[in-house]
Amino acid sequence: MKLTIDIGNTCTKLVAFNGLEALCECRTDTDDILRLKDFCSLYPFESGIMSSVIPVSHEMDKAISALPFNVMRFRSGVTPLPIVNMYSTPLTLGSDRIAAAVGAYMKHEGSPVLVIDVGTCITYDFVNERGEYLGGNISPGPKIRFRALHEMTAALPLVDRRGDLPETGYSTDTAIRSGVLRGIEYEIEGYIRDFLLKYPGLFIYLTGGVQLDLHISEKKCIFADKFIVPEGLNRILLHNEALISNEKNNI
């Protein structure tokens, strides 16, 4: 059994893996040490991997170190990967981005993959058919866009993304909501169409906490996968454990 710990901007995601299969997920506050301990008591974990896009508190780091099994710290640009990282500034690459790219590519080795993650930011990450991570793009997510419209103007309200979503807004609230959310959909549709023209054998993974209504015909190659980051972390953990095992066998 393997444990992945993905510490993000808004929450921490814990996932239990049996081999390559995700068995259970727990989402909790970033520094909820009790939930971490409770989750780890449910399964006979042998090892784990921790990734974070924010500084980890001393208390959480201490709690992870105190677990009764080894937890590897994944560091982008430092930890060995089962794919080739071609990013020119690997140390600045978000660990969640490269983990998602690993997770997607390992499902379709030999084919190009594009991962689109709609969260605090919208990220687009691409791996070619040779298993080379070539990079990607970062765009503001829904929350940032709503806040920017409110905080950077004198009169526009802060609108909740949940609510009526007409094709054409009939009020200021619906105009903002439709403008932001439909704008994101059009943006993503544009990326997908452009990448499919260049890479006909492309596989596309959508993840993140925002539901999208995409209007494109090539949906057979698009997969929604909330576990794509944990799956990538699990693959990275297994890859590093295999490297260590091979080194020991060669001594």
Rank of each mutant, 00 (worst) to 15 (best):
V113R: 04
F126L: 00
K2C: 00
P90S: 11
D29H: 15
M1D: 02
T28Q: 06
Y199Q: 08
I236M: 03
K37H: 13
N9G: 04
Y205E: 04
K37W: 11
P68D: 01
A242F: 14
A22V: 06
H215S: 04
T92H: 04
E185F: 13
G208I: 09
F146G: 04
R182Y: 01
S88V: 04
A100R: 06
V78G: 06
L14D: 08
R130P: 08
E241P: 11
D117E: 12
A155D: 07
T12E: 01
V127S: 03
C24I: 14
D173Q: 08
G141V: 10
N85I: 08
L197H: 11
L3I: 13
T79I: 08
Y43A: 02
D173M: 03
V102N: 11
I204A: 07
T10W: 01
L196W: 10
R130D: 15
E25T: 05
G131P: 12
D6G: 02
G131A: 15
L202I: 02
D29L: 12
P140R: 07
I144K: 15
G232F: 07
T123H: 14
R182P: 01
T92K: 09
A101M: 10
P157M: 07
P55D: 05
N246I: 13
T4M: 02
S95L: 10
F69N: 05
N70Y: 05
G208C: 06
R145V: 02
F126Q: 00
N70W: 05
S41E: 13
M60D: 00
K220E: 12
D31W: 05
N240Y: 12
E185V: 11
I49V: 07
D38N: 10
E132T: 14
D173E: 01
R235A: 12
G103R: 13
G48L: 05
E167P: 02
D96L: 15
F203R: 15
V115M: 02
L202F: 05
S41G: 12
L3Y: 15
I144V: 12
V102P: 09
P157W: 09
N249K: 12
K107T: 12
E189C: 12
L42N: 07
E21P: 00
F69G: 13
D164S: 06
